[in-house]
Design a protein around this nucleic acid. Structure first.
Lengths: 132, 132
DNA sequence: ACCTACTTTATAATGATTCTAAATAAGTGT
DNA sequence: ACACTTATTTAGAATCATTATAAAGTAGGT
């Protein structure tokens, strides 16, 4: 199975639930954005057996910690995740509450001139809010 | 009183509570970041009488809608607000969970090349995550 | 002073997320 | 295969920020 090694290599036991969540998250051409509730719905649609909501939370957080998912910094009552973990940015359509990917080439290079002593830059994320 | 006109001009009645919250938010040299709970604490420290938590929420949201406050897009269990409503960006220190202002001059100009049909760019916000 | 619409308030409700502790499954050595 | 240890799953409870409710209070105009 294609995700067993991926999980083992990061010290996660390849359980049935995790493998099924991998199928939903990573077995697609396109990357996508999701909230936990949307993911749970997708799992229900795709898979016969039921996975506990707690497991969905556990797994998403485990995958995030291992770098297979990213949180998208945005103000919403729910947390948004992204299966695209490459460096990129987002449009956020305020009216439709929809996220749209911005490739790095869509945004000029960003040069942070200020330095903070003893700290390294981990990521630079741009959120472009859209209105009609 | 210095905030009465500000409130009246935006269609908000200058109530005692709103004026006191104005004092806490805007009567300082420096702008600052806060959560609702931090603001409530500040109000308690600065003011004799008590303002209901619901009023703090109501007022902050009213001020945000009028453009006197901005939400900062960041993933946290609490919503962060900023009294600095000019265009600028933020460092987020992951370890200390602290926000630091980045002036526009600290970040090169950002040129968004992609256009979305029928939508205008309302804001461009950069979040730079810091680690040790 | 009176009226109307807005505001405040305490409290309840909501809802996403996290916690708990018991049951289950995976990995390891024999 | 078996026993043993440790990780994982799970249902349900707990937490906590935020929003809703509805009754009491206040501002501004007439």
């Amino acid at each position: 199975m294609k995700y067993i090694d991926k999980l083992r290599n990061s010290g996660l036991r390849p359980t049935k639930q995790r493998l099924q969540i991998c199928e939903v998250l990573f077995n697609t051409e396109k990357t996508f954005h999701f909230t936990i509730n949307e993911l749970e719905q997708k799992i229900k649609d795709k898979i016969d057996c039921k996975i506990s909501l707690a497991t969905v939370y556990n797994t998403v957080h485990a995958f995030e910690k291992k770098g297979y998912l990213k949180q998208i910094p945005i103000n919403s009552n729910q947390t948004y995740f992204d299966t695209n973990v490459t460096d990129h940015h987002h449009f956020y359509d305020l009216k439709d509450q929809k996220l749209i990917d911005l490739e790095n080439s869509d945004v000029g290079p960003i040069n942070i001139k200020k330095k903070i002593n003893g700290k390294r830059i981990k990521s630079v994320e741009v959120l472009v809010k859209l209105e009609d």
